[in-house]
Simulated scan of single mutants.
Amino acid sequence: MTGALVSVDLDRTMIYSRNALGAAFEDAVTCVEIYQDAPLSFMSIDAAESLRSLAVAALVVPTTTRTIEQFQRIALPGAPWRYAITSNGGNILVDGVPDGSWRAGFTGIELHRIQRELSTRADGDWVLKRRTADDLFCYLVVEPTEVPAGFLTEWSQWCAARGWNVSQQGRKIYTMPDVVSKSRAVAEVRARAIEDGMLDAGVRTFAAGDGALDADMLIAADRAIRPRHGELESKNFRFPGLEVTAASGGHAAEEILRWLQAQVGNRVEP
Results as ranks from 00 to 15, higher is better:
192 R>T: 07
195 E>L: 13
152 L>H: 10
193 A>N: 07
10 L>M: 11
250 G>D: 11
132 T>L: 13
70 Q>S: 12
247 A>P: 09
125 D>V: 07
121 R>D: 00
175 T>M: 15
264 V>H: 00
211 G>H: 10
155 W>Q: 14
122 A>N: 11
200 D>K: 10
53 S>T: 05
43 M>N: 02
216 D>W: 02
137 F>G: 10
226 R>S: 03
164 W>M: 08
81 W>I: 00
111 L>H: 08
214 D>S: 07
25 F>Q: 13
207 A>E: 06
141 V>E: 05
108 G>F: 07
37 D>N: 11
102 W>D: 13
233 E>Q: 10
211 G>L: 04
254 E>H: 11
210 D>C: 02
66 R>N: 03
96 G>V: 03
252 A>M: 04
45 I>W: 01
12 R>W: 03
87 S>N: 07
48 A>S: 06
88 N>Q: 14
63 T>Q: 03
232 L>G: 00
55 A>M: 01
108 G>C: 06
86 T>P: 02
55 A>R: 06
171 R>C: 10
127 V>E: 04
140 L>Y: 04
224 A>I: 01
33 E>G: 13
197 G>W: 02
203 V>H: 01
70 Q>K: 08
157 Q>E: 13
54 L>P: 05
250 G>N: 09
238 R>K: 06
195 E>P: 05
263 Q>K: 15
49 E>I: 02
184 R>F: 12
33 E>V: 11
24 A>T: 09
172 K>G: 01
26 E>F: 09
29 V>H: 11
33 E>I: 14
45 I>F: 00
268 V>T: 15
209 G>H: 04
33 E>P: 13
74 I>Q: 01
154 E>V: 02
237 F>E: 00
2 T>Q: 13
166 V>I: 14
167 S>L: 14
209 G>E: 01
56 V>D: 08
42 F>H: 06
194 I>Y: 10
252 A>E: 06
39 P>W: 09
5 L>H: 04
164 W>Y: 09
119 S>Q: 06
247 A>T: 09
206 F>Y: 15
199 L>H: 04
68 I>A: 01
64 T>W: 01
235 K>E: 06
110 E>Y: 03
133 A>W: 05
270 P>N: 14
131 R>F: 04
92 I>R: 04
125 D>R: 10
222 D>T: 11
84 A>F: 02
9 D>N: 08
122 A>E: 08
210 D>F: 02
139 Y>K: 07
74 I>V: 10
59 L>D: 03
187 A>K: 14
62 P>S: 09
137 F>M: 13
226 R>G: 01
222 D>S: 12
98 P>W: 05
266 N>M: 14
132 T>H: 09
115 Q>D: 14
138 C>Y: 08
74 I>C: 00
166 V>M: 06
223 R>K: 15
251 H>Q: 14
144 P>I: 03
254 E>K: 15
174 Y>D: 15
195 E>N: 12
42 F>D: 04
167 S>G: 13
213 L>T: 11
227 P>Y: 02
67 T>A: 12
51 L>Y: 00
43 M>C: 02
191 A>Y: 07
259 W>V: 06
129 K>N: 11
58 A>R: 01
169 Q>N: 15
173 I>N: 08
62 P>K: 12
216 D>C: 10
151 F>E: 02
96 G>D: 00
229 H>V: 09
259 W>F: 08
182 K>F: 04
